[in-house]
């Protein structure tokens, strides 16, 4: 909810309390159990009035960095954007309306991407537009075959 209460008090503590209350030991575990939900939806589930999407995002990023699973996180972020923007999967024809939806999804994905991955993410965007995936393609999680080809794990 956008009423500003998410920033009151010790929000990081609150965030992790909510995760643990639901039986997960990490934000990543909680998020991976809901692979196509948007970050805002994850936040709303954890706290409809007092957890913000950006807080969830920060936590996921911090955890991914610690575990050296940033690329996986970046893939999962595209999964979430596509699920929201293209509920019927990749359009068969890229008319203006669909192209805009794809453009906004790719733009948002890019904006979520940490500096270290921005170039690769840009290239993936180029590739998806230049050689479109099969119509109806909608990745269900970061282990989607096509996604793994486009953005393989490179960390040790």
């Amino acid at each position: 909810m956008t009423d500003g209460r998410s920033w009151e008090g010790h929000w990081r503590v609150r965030l992790y309390e909510r995760v643990r209350e639901r039986g997960y030991d990490s934000l990543t575990a909680f998020a991976e159990a809901r692979p196509t939900a948007s970050l805002v939806a994850l936040a709303e589930e954890l706290g409809p009035d007092d957890i913000a999407g950006v807080q969830v995002f920060g936590g996921l990023l911090a955890e991914a960095e610690r575990r050296k699973q940033l690329t996986r996180l970046v893939r999962s972020l595209l999964v979430r954007e596509l699920a929201e923007a293209l509920p019927n999967g990749w359009p068969a024809v890229l008319d203006d309306a669909h192209r805009l939806k794809v453009a906004v999804a790719l733009g948002t994905w890019f904006s979520y991407t940490p500096e270290t991955h921005k170039q690769r993410v840009d290239e993936v965007g180029d590739l998806l537009l230049a050689t479109p995936p099969p119509p109806g393609w909608l990745p269900r999680g970061p282990d989607d075959e096509l996604l793994l080809t486009l953005l393989p794990d490179e960390e040790a």
Binding site: R12, G58, L61, R99, L100, A103, G107, T108, S111, P114
Partner: peptide, 28 residues
């Protein structure tokens, strides 16, 4: 947001918004 991510933090408001807008426009 205190995550102490330094360079990894793409969530700075201005940066994030402009990235999203400019990239979307270029893709559109």
């Amino acid at each position: 947001g205190n995550w102490k991510l330094g360079r990894q933090w793409p969530g700075e408001w201005n940066q994030m918004l402009m990235d999203a807008l400019l990239k979307a426009e270029s893709r559109a």
